[in-house]
């Protein structure tokens, strides 16, 4: 049988000196101090700001003078039909993005790992991260160059197919069709983000103890079985933590992308909470509303993270965040 664990489990040796360990742990706690100071000062100290979401906040009069509204802003937000539509779209788009987008970097990393030529591997690794550096406005510009009806490459190819073969394929602008827009959204998302996502997995793969592969080979495992029984199990903690992070940001359906790509013909399927809040918050400085929406997203994220973490712990007590 192939050994499916990353490392053999051993009990902590019993004979270490209690005094020495205390000394060691003191240093370990000391190491934590700069990081904890950072999080306390730069992250926790400003967190009183979340109460903006419960107050009638005005930037001029300030937080102290603002009236408490309790959950009034949330109620107002939830009642708006446009918000409800944005909420539904948000869930659909996020779900599709996780469904397709989460496994993609893992698959890609496993494939890249199988490349034997180092130069070629480096080349592939570099090229796949490229799209990450191109802003959504430019990606949209390129999609537009492909899809627009007057000069776009796709409609022109379709047109010549129709003329040459005497068929009638509908020529539409995929960016301006409710039915096709989500496909464009997901595909462009996969293209843009999958490569960048491989960085973490490839680093984790690099860290796998080579002896495990040697052991597997001695057990007679071929490449596919090594992938299944060594690489994937060793990636499991990384996969789980990435999944938890991803689930925590489930309500972030991709503001930049949708802001760049949406238009009036597809807004009914593309409007998400962030674009909606951005739109209504722009007119005046509506910080209360934006904060309330952000808080709502965070709470949903928190619940889902705790849930995922709990499940992860059930499956593998060593993994998860907490």
């Amino acid at each position: 049988m192939v050994n499916s664990g990353c490392r053999p489990k051993k009990r902590v040796s019993a004979w270490h000196s209690f005094v020495r360990s205390l000394h060691m742990d003191f240093l370990l706690y000391a190491l934590l101090i700069p990081g904890l100071i950072y999080f306390t000062v730069f992250k926790y100290a400003p967190m009183y700001g979340v109460i903006i979401g419960f107050k009638d906040y005005n930037i001029v009069s300030g937080l102290d003078n603002a009236n408490w509204l309790g959950f009034g802003i949330f109620r107002d937000l939830f009642q708006r039909a446009a918000f409800q539509r944005a909420f539904m779209n948000n869930i659909i788009i996020s779900f599709l993005k996780i469904l397709w987008g989460f496994p993609m970097p893992i698959i890609l990393s496993l494939l890249i790992n199988e490349v034997r030529s180092r130069a070629y591997k480096k080349y592939v690794q570099t090229t796949v991260i490229l799209p990450h550096f191109i802003s959504w406005f430019i990606i949209y510009g390129m999609l537009y160059a492909l899809c627009n009806l007057s000069t776009g490459a796709i409609p022109q190819v379709l047109k010549s197919i129709n003329e040459t073969f005497g068929v009638r394929i509908d020529i539409v602008n995929y960016l301006a069709q409710k039915e096709t827009f989500l496909n464009v959204l997901i595909i462009s998302y996969l293209w843009q983000s999958s490569g960048y996502g491989t960085i973490v997995y490839l680093a984790a793969i690099t860290g796998i103890d080579q002896q495990l592969y040697e052991a597997a080979m001695i057990d007679g495992a071929g490449k596919p079985r090594q992938m299944w029984h060594v690489t994937l199990p060793c990636l499991r903690p990384t996969i789980i933590i990435m999944l938890i992070f991803r689930v925590g940001s489930i309500m972030n359906a991709g503001f930049d992308q949708i802001f760049a790509m949406s238009n009036s013909l597809v807004i009914s399927v593309a409007d998400i909470i962030d674009t909606y809040v951005y739109r209504i918050g722009m007119e005046e400085a509506k910080f209360s509303l934006a904060t309330a929406a952000g808080l709502f997203k965070s709470v949903i994220g928190l619940v889902l993270v705790l849930g995922t973490n709990w499940i992860a712990k059930k499956v593998d007590p060593e993994s998860g965040i907490m």
Binding site: K43, P46, G49, G248, G301
Partner: peptide, 11 residues
């Protein structure tokens, strides 16, 4: 801190 933040103004 990954989920909750104080926002622009307090920071």
């Amino acid at each position: 801190t990954m989920l909750f933040s104080g926002g622009t103004i307090p920071t």
